[in-house]
Amino acid sequence: MIVVEGLRVRFGRTVALDGIELCLEEGITGLFGPNGSGKSTLLRAVAGLVSPSQGSITFEGAPVAPSQEAWRRLVGYAGHESGLYPNLTVSENLELFGRLYGSDSERPASLLSQLGLEGRSGTQAGELSAGLKRRAAVARALVGEPRLLLLDEPYANLDDDSAALVSEALVAWREPGRSALVATHGAKKLKAFADAGVILRRGRVVTQGRYRDPSHRRRPFHETAAP
């Protein structure tokens, strides 16, 4: 669905992404790699929040066009920060973004329930703990029922139970025709249900591929990858 070719992103003298070649098919793809490997920049570039200095990103054969509403309607993104308005309640945040995306009016409440946030719906987002904020950020990214989901460290600051809720929400979201790219250091959590994986190092793809067999997911990704 998403094809990245020769993607290069520079910030001044720093080369954040150095000729990324990537084919993202439907399903959930884990994006792994050490700090500074370019995971967040790749997510931002695919979302259209960072302009590449070179290369191209296409979605179903057409170049990604962040300036077009039609493209933005397809994308759900949650970055390092929550992307929520701190002075609005969790519920108000989700309702606002849900309305802007034209989602079903029951979608925010359903996501709050799915991510275990019903009891916090009336709490202002700025008053949430880091873990609750992370879950609310995932809910916000999902509220528009995106076809392309881009998540940066969705498991950060989450305990095991909370991480399980996020995983369940991602599995519930997964449908034919939808793709997700999820950057995480919590590789074990994601590998339990991911369809594919990509490993980055120093702005380059080290390896990528789909898991051939669910039983292989417990093993290190590169052993099962078919580059």
Binding site: A47, E81, G83, F97, L100
Partner: peptide
């Protein structure tokens, strides 16, 4: 400033609405 506090500007830039 209200958009910068929690990175809401990114969320806003990605909503399907004419800029």
């Amino acid at each position: 400033e209200v958009e910068r506090a929690e990175g809401a500007l990114d969320s806003l830039l990605l909503v399907p609405v004419d800029r």
